[in-house]
Nucleic acid binder design. Sequence first.
DNA 1: GTCTATAGTCGGATAGAC
DNA 2: GTCTATCCGACTATAGAC
Lengths: 236, 236
Amino acid sequence: MRLDRSIREAAERIDTARSRARRSLLRAAIEVFGEAGFESATTREIAKRSAQNSAAIAYYFGGKAQLYEAVIEHVVTMINERIGMLLQSAERFLEKETWPREQALSFLQQMLEASVANSKDPEIVGITHIIVREQTNPSSAFDLLYKGVLGRLQRTGTRLMAVYVTGDPDHADFRLRFHALLGQALAFRHARATILRSAGWKDIDARQEAAIRDVVLDQTLLILDGLRARHKATGR
Amino acid sequence: MRLDRSIREAAERIDTARSRARRSLLRAAIEVFGEAGFESATTREIAKRSAQNSAAIAYYFGGKAQLYEAVIEHVVTMINERIGMLLQSAERFLEKETWPREQALSFLQQMLEASVANSKDPEIVGITHIIVREQTNPSSAFDLLYKGVLGRLQRTGTRLMAVYVTGDPDHADFRLRFHALLGQALAFRHARATILRSAGWKDIDARQEAAIRDVVLDQTLLILDGLRARHKATGR
DNA sequence: GTCTATAGTCGGATAGAC
DNA sequence: GTCTATCCGACTATAGAC
């Protein structure tokens, strides 16, 4: 049993060394892929930033493409850690038989807030850029991202919107409506350069982020209440 | 004078040959830069698609970077041909002393329609992709694009929105509000992959485009009328 | 003026030393 | 297991033939 223990300990030491190196490469990869995109990013730069040698990427991940795939998987995990609870609560809510409208609104608002939320953490910044890139210019890894996060967000948001407006999560087709609604928030991510210019900002910090959130939530409520009033009046 | 004439004619022949080659390279460059982005695009591919030799790019434009700059300039020209009249009419309208609200709304609607309008023309598709890329990932040529088109669109749209809501083009700060409003339309360009997936579409053709336009215009009106009603009631 | 052939650079992958 | 030194391919740009 002595032997077993020392073997296990050795295995753990190797495991942690392995995972330490992997984690370090992943962190650097998120940054570099985020800044430059898959094609323009170089494995040399990633290795340099993680203080690893250039052969480490092939050794731990198999190559540049597999490293990128691992990054996308990590992104999915990270996001689910951040908004998984929210999505799960919303999904449970939608499975019930009655849906208090105010709660649907609250979930929608939280989703929109999460979508405008920015961060100074370089990892979060990198993740944001990677997602934006994958949406405008999907790679073969887009599938992982869609199945892991985007699809669930889209589906749940659509049904929450339908609940708030009609009282029924499966009423008619709200997919385009929710996409446009969410577009208000995403505009500040996807057209970042334009908003910085036109608002005369140097960066989007906490104060600016609050202003954006207020506008998005306000206009969202105008849309939702407008649709709801119309639905009450005409049944459509 | 005979000589003068023949010299001029020869010069013109060369000019048209030059401009023919340039135009051909530009068309191909728009396609390739649109598909791959600046870094990933190769001059070989551009030369191949325009049936020119690879040295032609250096000869006519000076290099890959200058070709890209010429592409951006061409994009600005193309867009101004398409929506220049609209912007000019709107700008003239805003310079008057009184602003009939319905006309401001009409201009805004036309701007939004132009923003969702898609096209099968490969040149327009390429232009769209290049603009999307420059917004999410601005290069040094972003300046040209902003000054040539985006800034004007943003400024005019913001003032039109202010007119419709408050009756005064310079009322308060509508920049964020217009950016979010326009975001509804741009979401279908910037997050194209996501909407295709979630709506189960293979492509966005005329029918789908009409559905998108209807949703965007409808929700825009809800925002505008909601803001207007509030302004009437509270003066804010 | 137009093109081919090539120089010079850089990135990803890997063989082989330790 | 870890790293360095090198290979191979692909790219841009250009010199020089026609």
